[in-house]
Amino acid sequence: MLAHNQTADGNAGPALRLGHLYPDQLNVYGDRGNIITLRQRCRWRGIMLDVLPLQLGDELVPERYDMLFIGGGQDREQDEVARDLREKKSAGLRAAVEADMPVLAVCGGYQLLARYYRPAVGPELPGAAIFDAWTVHSGKEVARCVGNVALSWRESTLVGFENHGGRTFLAPGAEPLGRVLAGHGNNSEDHLEGCVYRNTFGTYLHGSLLPKNPHFADYLIQLALQRRYGIDSVEATLAPLDDSAEWQAHRAMLQRLGVS
């Protein structure tokens, strides 16, 4: 376990602050599971994780957060969110990203952090342009990318469920999150999934993503702790947890997809 020494905040043990963007609008596909997972995995190690909502109209002040999360929503709500993101949060978000804050963007949130979203009809929606990538929706006649999905990620795998009508393409040089082992990924064509820029991760995987991928959840927590407390600090050392239930669910999905 971690040493429960006093921190700068005067609390016992390390503490992290997670900014949850648009929790009321972007919460469609089990996004809550990602928050629950981050909170519990921190709690079980004596790390206090404060989840702070970033609502429509709120300014994003990077100094207030150690980590950011943005999920997926319905189309109508996405328009409203895209506008707010441009007008109220893009400068703060850009600063947080460039300062290596860990950011996780899932599904609609991933699309919003790319350069633009081009719907089948209507004008192009500019995004936050964190990722050098763009999304095209060719209309209702084109089948959605729906189903279970597995990726290679670093030396390991990620599993989840995807459900998106838009196809995302990465510019040359943009780094994908992983390679598709089973499922569609970004666009069903190039076998790439998600996008990474500095410590910002965009992905189509929900299911929810983090519960069945505890190594990815811990990677995000670790990045946040290192950034806040220094790379070699006691606080940035993650105590291991018993993840047998997590890996059982992860492996069951790999097996089912014929990936292992």
Partner: peptide
């Protein structure tokens, strides 16, 4: 429903 994300909601 093939997507079990809902159990987290």
């Amino acid at each position: 429903g093939e997507d079990v994300s809902w159990i987290w909601d």
